[in-house]
Design a binder for these strands. Structure first.
Lengths: 169, 169
DNA sequence: ATTTTATGTCAGCCTTGTTGACTTTCCAAG
DNA sequence: CTTGGAAAGTCAACAAGGCTGACATAAAAT
């Protein structure tokens, strides 16, 4: 139940590790994620796309030329599921799929200008909320926010997240 | 695109508000949320339940006796969608639905012992990851984490979140 | 008493996830 | 040069969990 005791422990109180605090953290994640996706979701309704399309567009923008297989593991869905989404985006002219030069089995994905425009619209909205939250909380809180989130990721994804740390492709 | 300039601003640098930093925050949310749901999802596979059941169970545990309508707005789904989930949980004997005493239109929801057991199994797993992340990041980071998440919520949900701040019902 | 509102249920549809089976393309090893 | 296997794509069928619309019943309001 409570964290190895409950009262103050060493030099630092460990009260932030109580079940109650952890529960609040869980709920905070849940509610915040709702807010996090709300604005893009509203925009996507105007096109005939969903969250799945948004995610694909986001990472193609972030790493132009990434392969389908890479995108698959980043998104954590099956190729069949991604394929449906990708096909729609290619047909609609938002994404270009180029056969690999070295390995022609691979398809490298790029946003077209039209795709980039939608990406901008979506990420502008999402960043606006993020910016407001960051500004309200301040730089120290933001650092903590990032630290906790990183610690929460699965190791594989954390590695991926960190390699694309501060630059697109 | 950078934040109102880019260089240091007032007393504090505003570099944490650049588009790059915001993008990293967005990705951190995405990857962390995957980790956040991974453990419960694995457990739920053993029963025939999904994330939707988990969410219902979580909030019924947190506020025993809450009405269907309240749960509806907390979860942000339609009553029809919730109904399907709730019906399964009631039929399987995890949730009890009692007619309201004052207003007999309302149904008040409670976990049975069986429901409470599943709740424990799920939240133990989720809290274990949360605890590890909290411990790794430290109390100051956790405070920041919570601050940013709160700032990211829609106002209505933030109010709800805060009212059930530090005690179930 | 009748109408209106709140609540919950049922039926049917859509998106997006899943598995499984199969083909095509192509690299690389025998 | 042939063959084995990886990468990619396709088709089909299905499940979870969103949605809307129609409807039943209880409570409240007129």
């Amino acid at each position: 139940m409570s964290v190895s005791g409950g009262a103050a422990q060493g030099g630092e109180s460990l009260l932030f590790l109580t079940d109650e605090q952890l529960r609040k953290g869980i709920e905070a994640m849940f509610f915040a994620y709702r807010g996090f996706t709300a604005d893009p979701d509203r925009i996507l309704e105007n096109y005939a796309y969903g969250r799945a399309h948004h995610r694909a567009i986001h990472f193609i923008h972030r790493q132009p030329g990434l392969t389908v297989n890479t995108l698959l593991s980043v998104l954590g869905v099956t190729k069949q599921s991604l394929n449906r989404v990708l096909r729609a985006l290619v047909e609609d002219g938002l994404v270009e799929s180029r056969v690999g030069r070295r390995d022609k089995r691979e398809r490298h994905l790029f946003l077209t200008e039209k795709g980039a425009a939608l990406e901008r619209e979506l990420s502008d909205a999402q960043r606006a909320r993020m910016r407001a939250a960051y500004r309200a909380a301040g730089p120290a809180a933001v650092a903590g926010f990032r630290q906790v989130l990183e610690a929460m990721m699965d190791p594989d994804l954390r590695r991926f997240y960190q390699t694309m740390k501060d630059g697109g492709a």
